[in-house]
Nucleic acid binder design. Sequence first.
DNA 1: GCCAACGTTGGC
DNA 2: GCCAACGTTGGC
Length: 154
Amino acid sequence: MAGNYWLFKSEPGAYSYEDLVRDGVAEWDGVRNYQARNFLRDRIKNGDQVLFYHSNAKPTAVIGTAVVVKAGYPDDTAWDQNSDHPDPKSSPDNPIWYMVDIRPLDRFSKEVTLQDIRNNPLLEDMLLLKKGGRLSIQPITEQQYCTICKMGKC
DNA sequence: GCCAACGTTGGC
DNA sequence: GCCAACGTTGGC
């Protein structure tokens, strides 16, 4: 299988890996950044594998893996005024924002912290480490994915 | 809580 | 189309 690999960021206070395990399947909604939207809409496919990263956490780290179970489709929370992130410019007829569904795979027995990633020369090219690597959805390589999985002993 | 680095908005 | 102001992200 020639799927793609991604890193999804989430603030654990908003939605943690534990929440994903509890829910079983999560709609990855609320992404309001065009670059990330393009990935969600055009590139992320069923079966793609995902590293789940906790940002704004102690420590900031990759917690586990997940798999995409539904490719990009319109984010209907955008036109729900009661949602956490409504956008009046988006509508069912003309959706601006997209989301995917993911399901948890393996929780790491050891969190892979940002510092661990920095310290591994194999991972020096990751967007996460670049200045301004704030994108909440980042493409990663298979090698980067596998390296981090091994570090997390999953 | 601070602040650097971005993205977005809006006046012109 | 430029760019200043503003909001957000996210590490520390």
